[in-house]
């Protein structure tokens, strides 16, 4: 198996480069992450993030043969060789495949991803009907791996100002929550030309989401809600 891996150490390298690696075909690697762990045995200087190795934590999101995904749930057989491994696009590289997620997390924080409810806390819990709870399906499952946001051209062009699909999916997750009381404030924060409205429904986000979520639909529903308030 042949690999071409993005290497960059800002402390010692003038510029990034691609390094070739090889593994025997019978090395036992099934997923890309298995192969990366074997490569790291070969070359301990190779840097990447990983944790749960089963598609739950989102740490090992990288770009494989030009497409974002989680290395731990991407079968090697599904990729043409040499398999090109690169960091997530448009985020600053800390080292090799490790990117700086500060901007991504700042956007996430900006949509206030928590329940805002000023009523006195009930004794047990804030109740929802089964239908109200159903509206949160397909929203709460996001693992914040950043595959969607870093594959979005609108984020590439305006990374500081456009919130990106991951943050906007979470914005809708709280707009759609029957227990939340800050709908007007949340909507008002999204009406400027950049935060929400740089989205042009390109749908790269929905295409790459490793959890099968649909941020484009969530963004469309936010726009619909905004329109319904004035029409």
């Amino acid at each position: 198996m042949r690999f071409s891996v993005y290497r960059y150490n800002p402390e010692s390298d003038q510029r990034p480069g691609m390094q070739s690696y090889e593994l025997p075909d019978d090395c036992g690697a099934i997923m890309v992450l298995d192969a990366m762990l074997l490569l790291k045995e070969q070359d301990p200087s190779l840097g990447f993030r990983r944790s749960c190795r089963e598609g739950v934590c989102g740490s090992d999101a990288i770009n494989m043969n030009g497409r974002n995904g989680l290395a731990c749930i991407t079968p090697i057989d599904s990729l043409r060789q040499p398999i090109e491994l690169r960091p997530l696009p448009r985020l600053p590289v800390i080292r090799d495949l490790i990117v700086d997620m500060s901007q991504f997390m700042a956007h996430y924080k900006a949509v206030k991803p928590w329940l805002i409810n000023d009523d006195p806390e009930p004794e047990i819990e804030r109740l929802q009907s089964p239908q109200e709870r159903d509206r949160l399906d397909g929203l709460y499952e996001c693992i914040l791996c950043a595959c969607c946001t870093t594959s979005c051209p609108s984020f590439w062009w305006n990374p500081e100002r456009f919130l990106g699909p991951a943050a906007l999916l979470q914005a809708w997750r709280f707009l759609a929550d029957s227990r939340d009381q800050a709908q007007s404030e949340r909507l008002a924060d999204l009406e400027d030309p950049y935060r929400l409205f740089r989205c042009h429904s390109i749908m790269n986000c929905t295409d790459v989401c490793p959890k099968g979520l649909n941020p484009t639909r969530a963004i469309g529903l936010i726009k619909q809600l905004l329109a319904r308030r004035v029409l």
């Binding site: 999204l190 935060r195 409205f197």
Partner: peptide, 13 residues
């Protein structure tokens, strides 16, 4: 003063 304007939404509509 609001931190955001409505211009994005108005243009979209």
């Amino acid at each position: 003063a609001r931190s955001s304007s409505q211009s994005g939404f108005i243009e979209w509509l």
